[in-house]
Amino acid sequence: MKGLKKLTLATAIAAAPFAANAELKAMNDIAMGDVTGQSGVTIELSTKVDIGEVAYQDDGFLAISGLSIGGAYDPATGAQGNLDDVKLMIDVAGTGGVADTGAGAVGNAYLEGAAIAKPNVSWTNTQTTSTDPATTPAAAANEAGMPQIEDGDLVIGIRSVSGAPVDFGVGIDSVKLAKSTESANLGNLGAGTGTTLISNFKMSGMLGPIDVVIQENQNAMNVNAYFNAQGTLNADFVGTYIDFKLHNSRGTDTNGLTIVDANNNTLVDTSFAHAQVDIGKATNAAGNDALAFNVNDFSGDLDLTNIRMGSANAASIGDVYLTDMKINAQMTVYGH
């Protein structure tokens, strides 16, 4: 409970610092006539978040124990650094649309622009509809669900300070079920005897451009994200243990980002899965308000390797490779 109170407090305070970082200028009424707009807010972020337990109670509990969010896990030592090098650009667009935002472009168009502006960066994407990115950087075909940025839209662009993709890591010690009678152990449900759904989940990856657009005239948050991930997962309750890798380097739908240094040494050579998700309000079949969670696109290649059954130490039965996976899902979420 102590932790929850702190989090609630953090929410309340969190809104305040946004204004503090903005380049606000004092101005009088006469000067206002010349104003063409402000420059938006940029936040550079370095963070590591560890949560001992996240417990969801329906009647019984579902407890996520040992949740950590930070930088990528060191493959040799297993140590996790900070989630750093993150740059958040927050703008409310004017009549100039996307040009009014800090990032200047969304998703694929941003990467095309970066590749043109910097000779050491190269970006290819078979999903792009742009015939000549030099003159007209374009959205990729799988970004079609993203709205055109218009006057009054709130735009949050997540980029990096360095220009290279941001590395991230997420770990979960266990996800367990617990009986309602175990409420006295809240905070330590992971030590109980309940069924373990998932354990030893460790995921590291890179974040490409992520854009969040809340339109001035729609009750929806539109998210467009390029990212990749790899890691390990134990699904204990069905006795299945796997390593996984999500990317987009195989098949007919591929993309690729490479960045080299001044001596032509490769700094980054990677590919990104893509997700375009709209979160908003919907009406369910019973006519009640509900949360709408629409996955307009989730695409990439998924490798499930070192698949073991029975125990994590068992011999691998082989690998499964899913190529050019595309998921489209409309979900309406509510209590019952």
Binding site: T323, D324, K326, N328, M331, V333
Partner: peptide, 30 residues
């Protein structure tokens, strides 16, 4: 904290779903 022992819980969660999944290929490699 004191209330928790009396809690009987929430109502659970429903998701109405409409979905389609496609894959260019799937390979099982032994």
């Amino acid at each position: 904290d004191n209330d928790l022992s009396g809690v009987t819980g929430g109502t659970g969660l429903s998701i109405d779903l409409s979905s389609q999944i496609s894959m260019g290929g799937m390979t099982f490699e032994d």
